[in-house]
């Protein structure tokens, strides 16, 4: 028992934690961190668990994330099974009552939204399919707008003293967002009807938004890496189709899309998948500016 005393002695020697007024927000992905920052402004202090170079499917419940989850007032994630490999561990080990499933501090962006590609049959022989549908909603600005509306309500619920400020921030954001969406849609009009190949089924909502069609993926099945054989099969499948571009996220291995580029000639394009991966994408507006620009400049 003397060891226990020693342990607690050590603990009491820890520096006192400074009191912070800002709402502590734990964002599973940078896009939700950026959105919370837009609506919360100086009232929130946002920590993002992942970065643009990382695949949100495969994050480890590492010590720094546990410490941040423990201190969070609001946890904002994509949901729909995207974080199934790590978020449950963070929640279970955090000792934080505020962010547990169903609490006001637990916010899943995909909740209440109609998701695309909901599987008819759940079988892992079809790859790592998400039962709830494709979770990569952040590439459709209409989805962002819908999440913003719900997030505004939630922030006001958690921090009622500042409700007016959140509402004001939301109104301002939404106004600028609607204007920006109209501009992106105007600029991207020439992309309508184009045929696309993606590395992973990560761009479904982008294609849906801009009226493009996905004619193939480099991954033979979701979550299964491309192999020499699967690429040859894809090549045959694409015969006679005029592919506009081969698209990948920054965390995807470039080799498969470069290989396909060498064989079919269509440009291989790396699109930002979230906020902050490259210059110009440090907020949500920049994220879509760069996405649309890169697609237009592919040819």
């Amino acid at each position: 028992m003397k060891y226990l005393a020693l342990l607690f002695g050590l603990l009491s020697a820890l520096p006192a934690v400074p009191a912070q007024a800002a709402l502590k927000v734990f964002a599973c992905e940078p896009e939700w961190g950026a959105l919370t920052q837009e609506l919360g402004g100086a009232l929130v202090s946002v920590y993002s668990a992942t970065m643009a170079q990382q695949d949100p499917h495969h994050i480890e419940a590492r010590p720094s994330l546990l410490a941040r989850t423990r201190n969070a007032d609001l946890l904002i994630c994509t949901g729909a099974g995207l974080e199934a490999g790590w978020l449950p561990v963070l929640l279970a080990q955090s000792g934080n009552a505020k962010v547990q499933t169903g609490q006001p501090g637990w916010f899943m962006a995909t909740d209440g939204l109609a998701l695309l590609e909901k599987p008819i049959k759940l079988d892992r022989a079809m790859g790592d399919v998400h039962a709830a549908g494709n979770p990569h909603i952040q590439q459709d600005p209409h989805m962002i707008a819908a999440v913003a509306q719900r997030l505004n309500q939630r922030l006001q619920q958690i921090d009622p003293a500042n409700a007016a400020t959140y509402q004001h921030n939301y109104d301002s954001f939404n106004q600028r967002w609607q204007v920006a969406m109209a501009r992106w849609e105007r600029e991207a009009a020439p992309l309508r009807g184009k045929l696309m190949v993606s590395h992973h089924k990560a761009f479904t909502y982008l294609y849906h938004w801009l009226g493009m069609t996905e004619v193939g993926t480099l991954e033979p099945l979701p979550g299964i890496d491309p192999s020499a054989q699967s690429l040859v099969t894809l090549l045959q499948q694409l015969k006679g189709k005029s592919v506009y571009a081969i698209v990948r996220a920054p965390y995807n291995d470039a080799r498969a899309s470069e290989w396909l580029h060498d064989h079919i000639g269509a440009p291989a394009v790396e699109l930002p998948f979230t906020i902050g991966g490259e210059s110009g994408t440090d907020n949500l507006f920049g994220f879509f500016d760069v996405t649309v620009k890169r697609l237009l400049e592919a040819h």
């Binding site: 209440g112 939204l113 109609a114 600005p141 509306q149 719900r150 309500q153 909502y205």
Partner: peptide
């Protein structure tokens, strides 16, 4: 686009 459907309110989602 799928997002044009109005988002569902918080309470209903729960």
């Amino acid at each position: 686009p799928p997002a044009y459907s109005a988002p569902v309110a918080d309470a209903a989602v729960m």
